[in-house]
Write a protein that binds this DNA or RNA. Structure first.
Lengths: 256, 256
DNA sequence: CGCGATTTGTGCACGCCTTCACAAGCGCCT
DNA sequence: AGGCGCTTGTGAAGGCGTGCACAAATCGCG
């Protein structure tokens, strides 16, 4: 029921890929489904329809069904999806059956918060070590873990079999930290520093930039404001450009 | 030079939209360009080529040029882009010419960190007020701001003309907070709580979920591991599914 | 003043993702 | 046992985003 190779497919049976190369967009949504499913399970639901799960996850139901079908879904027509089954399935695909060890580098403002964030622990991860370059911070204890100096990374990485690194340092330090993480074999990095990291092929980097999120919101805010301000006469906002941008005026520009 | 409506477009001249409806993907990248430009400006560059800016922002140059062209770019062929000009232009488009007031709700672990994060201040925002529902936290001072009770939101929102709300509460409280924010006229919300918010049309919500980012990395980690583990014989990983998923075996499944 | 080097702006084609719409399948009720 | 209603899984179409490749434009130099 999991592999649908068109029923009459020719020979070569059993050649089912272990991890069926999910579309990136699907992968990004699976965690959301997983969270919604956990909620449903807690509130006693044993099964859920695509419609129900979709609305709990904030997506449309067709998309959800297609996503689940990619991993060889476990739904029953006329009934829906078995919640427990789906949880197991998604957790397996996401590699959450083993609790991965995470190293957090940089215990400043944000690092402190991340170290104490229980969402990590409750969703399949274990913060295994904290690092910082600042000697004043080394030795400090944060939610049961002692901050180590970054130079200890190689030793600790092996001991704890670190798989994922989280960078919460200031931007100038981030690239060096990334290099160190890569050097000890880390192949997945979550970067909170506002800068671009360059890493060798095969290493995945995801970036979270809080200010960028706000700036995107700001854009829409700006847009909404300018739309309500001039519902009829478009264009005057351009004239409000900071001095020097001077595009002259639309007429002339069209003449060009 | 900013509006390109096919040069010979019929009548209705001057109907140039103030904010030219940028593709969402472009909007999401503009802040990154902006950050890179600020770096370049600080290091003394007056102009930059698309190639240079693109690599500083971690994208490819064709994409960068297309993005900039959408906002009626200010490049000079054979030379490049004027850094200062582009900064002004992007900041204008993103609505960063006015420093927007942000209300932060929930000063727990993460909220504390966000309140102290200087990246907000340095990139066009002003944290104008902190709120919490817990009476024990009300009155506490964090980086120069006093935590207020959430019930004061309506009054403060007006006083400070809050435009953007940041939710850093536990998941169960998030929807109620969102409702309150919407009620006082906030139309942009950045949500750190791991849950789906439902808001009226016209309100923008962006979600940042730290655990989800890790889970996405985990997927790729899992994938990389399973690929190196079984380069030839695909399929055995499915057999490793947690008990109960029992798809029996491919042969039988095909028979169905 | 013209030419070549350089770099932007963009037409085009391709691929991914989303969405619609519906046939196939399943359980329940009569 | 049969039919009916409900829900999944998926084919097909459309839209969006990406990247290539090149024409147009500008500068500097001889």
């Amino acid at each position: 029921m999991s592999q649908h190779r068109h029923p009459g497919a020719p020979g070569r049976a059993g050649a089912v890929p272990a991890l069926p190369d999910l579309p990136e967009a699907t992968v990004a949504r699976l965690p959301e489904y997983l969270r919604a499913l956990h909620n449903l399970a807690e509130s006693g639901h044993e099964t859920v329809s695509s419609e129900g799960l979709a609305s709990a996850a904030g997506v449309n139901s067709a998309k959800l069904r297609k996503d689940l079908s990619h991993l060889g879904s476990y739904g029953t027509r006329g009934v829906g999806y078995d919640v427990a089954l789906l949880v197991d399935q998604i957790e397996f695909v996401l590699g959450l059956t083993q609790r991965r060890a995470v190293a957090l580098v940089g215990v400043g403002n944000l690092g402190h918060a991340l170290a104490g964030y229980d969402g990590f622990a409750s969703r399949g991860f274990r913060i295994a070590a904290l690092f910082d370059a600042d000697p004043d911070r080394v030795g400090e204890e944060i939610s049961g873990l002692v901050v180590r100096h970054i130079d200890e990374l190689p030793r600790v990485a092996v001991e704890e079999s670190i798989a994922i690194g989280v960078i919460a340092t200031p931007a100038p330090a981030a690239q060096a930290v990334a290099d160190q993480l890569v050097a000890v074999g880390v192949t997945s990095i979550l970067n909170f520093a506002p800068c671009v990291l360059s890493v060798p092929e095969g290493v995945d980097v995801r970036k979270v930039d809080l200010a960028i999120e706000l700036q995107i919101l700001s854009f829409h805010e700006h847009r909404k404001a300018s739309l309500t301000a001039l519902p009829a006469t478009g264009g005057s906002a351009l004239a409000a450009l900071p001095g020097g941008l001077a595009v002259t005026d639309p007429q002339e520009a069209i003449g060009t």
